[in-house]
């Protein structure tokens, strides 16, 4: 089946079998390999992408279901070659990762949170990433990265004082 996808603000027409997950479509057809397969049954969250701004599991969505929505992958988050978004930079600042496998998904889940709430409490941060399993870090430096990014984003939005 042909399906039109809007990914990182670019349109792609791909020919897919109905059974192809959005995750496999992104990785195999579009070579967007930042989304990772962890469990392929919707628990670990490593395949998280944004659909209309909300974090969703791309392993639990078929590519044929994904037309007409705006999909954002980790590849769509950095402002330009060699550049990092404030959130990505905050993950580097706190070392909110180790092996990097769950990281793109973790950042997208955090991005979805911060796009709605720039002053999250620790509980809200924890809840927002609780569907994303990280086996390396014990989460502490991830939570700190998100809090740091929130702080920086709030700072950016502060009115300039004379």
């Amino acid at each position: 089946m042909k399906v039109e996808l809007d990914i990182n603000r670019e349109r792609h027409t791909v020919d897919v079998e109905p059974r192809l997950s959005l995750l496999d479509c992104l990785r195999d057809k579009l070579l967007l390999t930042g989304a990772h397969a962890g469990c392929e049954h919707g628990v670990c969250g490593a395949c998280t992408v944004l659909v209309d701004g909300a974090a969703v599991r791309s392993c639990l969505m078929f590519a044929v279901q994904a037309d007409g929505v705006a999909i954002t992958t980790i590849e769509g988050l950095s402002p330009g070659p060699g550049e990092l978004s404030p959130l990505q930079d905050a993950f580097c600042e706190t070392h909110g990762m180790q092996c990097g496998y769950c990281t793109p998904a973790m950042i997208l889940a955090a991005h979805a949170l911060l796009s709605k709430n720039t002053s999250p409490t620790r509980e809200e941060i924890v809840d927002a990433i609780s569907g994303n399993i990280c086996r390396c870090t014990g989460y502490a430096q991830i939570v700190e990265a998100i809090a740091l990014a929130a702080e920086r984003i709030r700072g950016q939005n502060d009115p300039v004082r004379p």
Binding site: G34, T73, S78, L84, F91, M97, G100, Y101, P104
Partner: peptide, 15 residues
Amino acid sequence: EDRRFVVGKGNFAAD
């Protein structure tokens, strides 16, 4: 190493 991971540019076996 973190810079490549936060942008999804790790080089994992499945990639």
